[in-house]
Amino acid sequence: MLDPKVLMTIKDLPLLAKTVIDGFMNGFNKSKVKGPGLEFSQYRSYQPGDDLRWLDWRMFARSDRYYIRESEIETSISVRFLVDASASMNHDDNGIKKIDYARFLAASLAWLSNLQGDSVGLYVFQDGGLFSLASKPDPQHLQRLLYHLQQINPAGTFTKPVHYKELFAGTGRKELLVFITDMYQAEGEINRLLDSLSALKHEVVVFHLMGKNELDFDFGDYSTLEDLETGETMEVNTNEAATYNQKLKDHLENIRMQLLGKHVFYRMISTSQPLDEALRDFLVQRNKGKF
């Protein structure tokens, strides 16, 4: 159920997210997953102000007293999902667009974050503008986030720099920022965004989406390619595959090293890959956030 081709058949995004996480957790060693609602180390007596979601009703039935499941990570964190919705995210590989994969990934990670008691927020960079949905921890807010994810229709170019420091400064606590993008930029605008985010000392994760046809230089019978953001076209010359592959390898390595220098976690993902690797990477970074 983590295969993007299978996920394309599920039209309801909340159902898709739940299906992905249920399947992922069934195949995952749950002892590695820390956080409220998934694994706890002990019970303690309920105190006024405790989150009622972590009351254990079975313990109440046995003892007639209220107990809280105390997690190994006692505090939740804020997870903000940043989604690139510029026109280049409409790139299609074998029926799967990058924006589809981004939608599946963000929805699944938001569902998993909500299970862990984290606040989730959504920020969509599209056609020069920026949609913002601030972080909140409640299930109703998760449904709003999934609704807005479903409505994304990529267009235009990536948003030019805005007041990122004010937008992502939050409450002063560290946060986990998950940026899903194809890293396509005309004037370094994505680099400037990442410079601002890394300066705030948050944990930043970049999932760089690439089509398998881009990685393999395999565009079937097409003889020309069109830039989805500028409309410019170029001829496809299959005799230059070796040169293309080397330039692509150098380009991806350059991105990786740049982000490493900013202390940003980077993972390049093909849109043909199942979601499990990205989910595992997310859990590793989330569990670093014992803020």
Score class of each variant (00 low, 15 high):
residue 72 E to M: 11
residue 91 H to R: 14
residue 83 V to L: 03
residue 86 S to Y: 00
residue 99 I to D: 00
residue 75 T to E: 12
residue 102 A to F: 08
residue 90 N to Y: 09
residue 101 Y to D: 07
residue 70 E to G: 03
residue 91 H to K: 13
residue 70 E to I: 06
residue 94 N to E: 15
residue 104 F to I: 03
residue 79 V to Q: 08
residue 78 S to C: 12
residue 80 R to C: 13
residue 94 N to T: 13
residue 86 S to P: 06
residue 70 E to R: 00
residue 84 D to M: 06
residue 92 D to P: 02
residue 99 I to A: 10
residue 81 F to E: 04
residue 96 I to A: 05
residue 80 R to V: 12
residue 92 D to I: 15
residue 77 I to K: 13
residue 83 V to N: 07
residue 105 L to W: 04
residue 89 M to Q: 10
residue 98 K to M: 05
residue 102 A to G: 10
residue 82 L to V: 10
residue 104 F to A: 02
residue 89 M to F: 05
residue 92 D to E: 15
residue 86 S to A: 07
residue 88 S to G: 07
residue 87 A to L: 05
residue 91 H to F: 15
residue 78 S to L: 10
residue 85 A to P: 01
residue 99 I to F: 08
residue 87 A to F: 08
residue 72 E to N: 13
residue 78 S to R: 12
residue 75 T to L: 11
residue 81 F to A: 03
residue 92 D to N: 15
residue 76 S to A: 15
residue 74 E to A: 14
residue 82 L to R: 08
residue 102 A to V: 04
residue 74 E to C: 10
residue 71 S to Q: 09
residue 85 A to S: 01
residue 102 A to Y: 09
residue 102 A to D: 05
residue 80 R to T: 12
residue 84 D to R: 09
residue 88 S to A: 03
residue 88 S to Q: 07
residue 102 A to I: 08
residue 93 D to V: 11
residue 93 D to Y: 12
residue 94 N to R: 15
residue 90 N to H: 11
residue 76 S to H: 11
residue 71 S to N: 00
residue 78 S to Y: 09
residue 98 K to H: 01
residue 82 L to Y: 10
residue 90 N to M: 12
residue 80 R to K: 13
residue 105 L to H: 02
residue 89 M to V: 08
residue 77 I to E: 11
residue 100 D to I: 10
residue 106 A to R: 04
residue 103 R to N: 06
residue 104 F to Q: 05
residue 83 V to T: 02
residue 75 T to K: 14
residue 82 L to Q: 06
residue 82 L to K: 09
residue 102 A to K: 07
residue 85 A to C: 01
residue 84 D to Y: 01
residue 89 M to T: 05
residue 79 V to Y: 04
residue 85 A to V: 03
residue 105 L to M: 11
residue 74 E to S: 14
residue 73 I to E: 02
residue 84 D to K: 04
residue 78 S to F: 09
residue 88 S to D: 05
residue 92 D to G: 11
residue 92 D to R: 14
residue 84 D to P: 07
residue 80 R to S: 14
residue 79 V to F: 00
residue 81 F to L: 13
residue 85 A to H: 07
residue 74 E to M: 12
residue 81 F to Y: 11
residue 103 R to E: 08
residue 91 H to C: 13
residue 71 S to M: 06
residue 74 E to L: 12
residue 105 L to I: 04
residue 97 K to R: 15
residue 77 I to H: 12
residue 89 M to P: 01
residue 96 I to R: 02
residue 77 I to G: 13
residue 106 A to I: 07
residue 97 K to T: 14
residue 70 E to P: 03
residue 73 I to Y: 03
residue 70 E to S: 11
residue 82 L to S: 02
residue 81 F to N: 03
residue 83 V to K: 06
residue 75 T to F: 09
residue 85 A to E: 00
residue 93 D to A: 13
residue 84 D to G: 08
residue 90 N to W: 07
residue 94 N to I: 12
residue 106 A to H: 02
residue 75 T to Q: 13
